[in-house]
């Protein structure tokens, strides 16, 4: 296993540009590489911006989804490396699992490590998991698994099948309604660095086969968790499946239901009922 420690977060716009230019001719197996950063301090202004866009209260603990924003540039660097078998443009985030052992304080120094695993066959292609581990004071406190679908790709022969399903209850009572504006993708891109063109404008989304810009899955997840502020266990696992794209602008509903000592969640279009996100929140 090769582990590379980076001094700073890679610049995402350049990586996305490189990803587009080097999309063709990829293949083979997942690289056995890990990228890491050590002693990462959270920028309070960046945190305040993130909290505002996702509707988290600004407090002394990081929002549950915030470490993803710290680890994401490393994951993109990993995926844009020539050795990565799948082309980043066109990858669709289909599932995200976050497990936290305890809340992380704003002032804690964090060590990040990311890697890819589970290159798995899927009915519509292949999936790969981008994993992240966040440690504080030498002990792991937070980990995540982001599953991406590459349509039409093929996984190595004999690999166990992909698992992108999350089971939830009926969730037939909406708890809240959100009007998700036209610029929701641009706003989240600004605070997360995820400048994937499918989120930024109708025009750039069309170039990648979407009829309109789509909301970031991680923003939808973050906003759903923000709605449960004060009602989440300290040690928690949040597992969500991203179903149909949330086209911008849209009006959606959040449904919540107590289940298994935590919550089941669903985010759906207010009119059509199209499911954008379903997920579970469980004490860990």
């Amino acid at each position: 296993m090769a582990r590379t420690v980076l001094d700073a977060a890679p610049a995402l716009p350049a990586l996305f540009a490189r990803a587009a230019l080097t999309a063709r001719g990829r293949g083979g197996e997942l690289p056995d590489t890990r990228l890491a950063r050590t002693g990462v301090a959270v920028d309070p202004a960046a945190l305040a911006d993130y909290a505002q866009v996702c509707r988290f209260p600004l407090g002394d603990a990081l929002p549950l989804t915030f470490p993803h924003v710290l680890a994401f540039p490393l994951q993109v660097a990993l995926m844009t490396d020539r050795a990565f078998p799948l082309a980043l443009p066109g990858l669709v985030h289909v599932r995200n699992l976050i497990e936290a052992d305890r809340p992380i304080g704003v002032g804690e120094q964090l060590d990040l490590e990311v890697w890819a695993e589970r290159f798995a066959p899927h009915a519509r292609g292949a999936t790969v998991d981008l994993c992240a581990s966040v440690s504080a004071g030498g002990a792991e406190v937070w980990r995540s698994r982001s599953t991406y679908l590459a349509r039409g790709a093929s996984a190595p022969e004999g690999a166990p099948a992909s698992d992108v399903d999350v089971e939830v209850g009926a969730l037939d009572r909406p708890a809240a309604q959100w009007r998700v504006p036209d610029d929701a993708g641009r706003r989240y891109a600004k605070v997360s660095g995820d400048v994937n063109p499918i989120h930024l404008s109708g025009l750039t989304a069309k170039a990648f086969g979407f009829k309109r810009a789509i909301a970031h899955g991680m923003w939808v997840k973050a906003r759903a968790l923000a709605a449960l502020s004060g009602r989440l266990p300290d040690a928690v696992a949040v597992d969500v499946a991203f179903r149909k794209p949330l086209f911008l602008p849209s009006t959606v509903t959040l449904s919540t239901e107590q289940a298994g000592g935590g919550w089941d969640l669903a985010v759906r279009n207010v009119k059509s009922g199209t499911e954008h996100l379903i997920g579970t929140v469980r004490p860990a």
Binding site: P44, A48, P57, L58, G59, D60, G230
Partner: peptide
């Protein structure tokens, strides 16, 4: 500077 009244009151209650 970036904390709202609601942020501060919520943190204080918690």
């Amino acid at each position: 500077a970036r904390a709202s009244n609601q942020d501060m009151l919520t943190a204080t209650l918690d």
